[in-house]
Design a binder for these strands. Structure first.
Lengths: 139, 139
DNA sequence: AAAAAAACTTGTATAATACAATTATATACC
DNA sequence: GGTATATAATTGTATTATACAAGTTTTTTT
């Protein structure tokens, strides 16, 4: 029976991921959204730290950060003591975009779980978070 | 409080999706895996039906099916009554690959939820499925 | 029989990613 | 203090997954 649960989780995760991959919700791409979210909630950081946080290649984050900068959502702040390093600071426009995007995403998710009980929504959120934390610790 | 649940689901979904996108589990790509799974569990089908099932563009499925064919996991069967149409039939090799991949994926998921109770695993699987079904119906 | 529709493939473009090479600066060593 | 090495970041190149547009072949409609 344990096997059966795993099978269900595994398959449904695969389906979920394929279905939501590439379907843009608002204006921000998923990667840009998460990067902005991270900078907003944990403060300015450089590409190395951000890449480590997300378990992405530095080059990937470098491009994403450059794209955010180009749109004016973050500014590049030179490190005062290390001439090689920068950190990315969110701008007011970036905060606005982040909140707008979050709102759009919440509305979309809300529409899907419209008929769920509050308890179900809560448990689903908590289990997703628990799964993410466990997966991060095992990587 | 409802808002808070949505926010959690929304954020954790975004994290989950980014984390699992591109990280290959076994030999089969996610798209190929789901396509094989579908053909295996619902029988041979053509690209149009498969694309409709997955809500993907026909051209996308056409390429994926061609890739599976090239690897010998499916064979292309001409439609006996319509010269334009084919269906894709899973091969023994395809079944073997599918099962191997499923096993690898289950092991990986199993590792993440190793310390979860049976009930938590069950509920997580069920809520994921419920979410997927609801999302599919709203698309 | 010609026109329109349908099933599928192929061309082209975009997003997200990784790995390899490169650039510029900092640190270590002697 | 100068050379060698390490580090922070960017840039080049490739892959996967996707969409949309154009093209091919066959079928259906009229």
């Amino acid at each position: 029976m344990n096997e059966h649960h795993l099978e269900m989780i595994e398959l449904e995760l695969a389906i979920l991921i394929r279905r939501t991959t590439t379907k843009k919700t608002g204006n921000l791409e998923r990667s840009a959204y998460l990067l902005l979210h991270q900078i907003n909630s944990h403060g300015a950081a450089g590409v190395k730290a951000l890449a480590a946080e997300f378990d992405l290649d530095i080059s990937t984050v470098s491009r994403q950060a450059a794209a955010l900068e180009q749109k004016g959502y973050v500014t590049r702040v030179p490190d005062p003591v290390d001439g090689r390093a920068y950190s990315f600071q969110i701008t007011d426009l970036g905060i606005k975009e982040l909140l707008d995007e979050k709102q759009a995403r919440k509305a979309k998710v809300g529409n899907v779980v419209k008929n769920w009980s509050d308890e179900e929504k809560q448990i689903f959120g908590e289990l997703l978070k628990k799964f993410n934390i466990a997966a991060t610790n095992k990587r």
